Simulated scan of single mutants.
Amino acid sequence: MTEETSELDNVGAEMDAANLYSEEVVTDRKVGVIRILTPIDANGQRDPSRAPIFTGETQIMTQMGPLPISFEIPAANVAEAVAGYSAAAREGLRKTVERIRELQREAASQIVTPGMPGFQAPPAAPQGGGIVMP
């Protein structure tokens, strides 16, 4: 058995037959996408004991290019999901920006040591060993 095969065996990628959904996509072709996740049973029949889940997707342009934003939309039906899309998108964007800032703070507070990615040696001291005055 190859190393790749043994790693795949450890992934544990088994489907949960009690938590299946079918997916439908709704879009206005301008702002974004709403995904409707309809609960189904293992036979593919609608599971009325569970409510559908509505998620939204959009993207914003950044200096690095488009940034996809995904968010859950609290709704009981498509009409409510469409009406709630804008507010849910704003909240999804707020959470994404908050997470990016948190990651930036974590990266800025890391102590960089030789051998770590991003380590850069300080500039060399001036020749002659003295202090250079402007």
Rank of each mutant, 00 (worst) to 15 (best):
M64P: 04
P117S: 06
A51K: 08
V25H: 13
R105Q: 13
P114G: 03
A121Y: 05
P52Q: 10
A121M: 04
E23Q: 11
P52V: 09
A87P: 12
E72K: 08
R90P: 00
A51N: 06
V97Q: 10
L8P: 04
D9G: 15
T113N: 04
G129T: 08
V78F: 02
V132C: 02
E3Q: 10
M133Q: 06
T113M: 11
L8Q: 08
I36V: 14
A121N: 04
P48T: 03
G56F: 02
P66W: 11
A42T: 06
Y21M: 05
A125D: 12
S49P: 11
P48A: 01
M15N: 02
R90D: 07
A13P: 03
M61I: 05
A108S: 11
Y85V: 05
V97I: 15
R29C: 05
S6M: 14
A89E: 01
K95M: 14
V82R: 02
G84H: 00
A13M: 04
P52K: 07
T62G: 08
A125P: 13
D16P: 13
I131R: 00
A76Y: 13
G32E: 14
P66A: 00
M64S: 07
A13T: 04
P52A: 07
P126K: 00
V33Y: 13
A83Q: 04
D16I: 14
R94M: 12
N77V: 03
E102K: 12
I34G: 05
G84Y: 02
L8W: 12
Q59K: 06
G65I: 05
E23P: 06
S49G: 07
A83L: 03
P68K: 06
E23C: 09
E98T: 08
A81M: 11
V78E: 01
T38D: 03
I36W: 12
Q127R: 09
F71Y: 02
A89N: 02
A81P: 11
L67D: 04
S49V: 12
N77L: 02
G128C: 01
V25Y: 10
Q104I: 10
E23F: 13
Q110V: 09
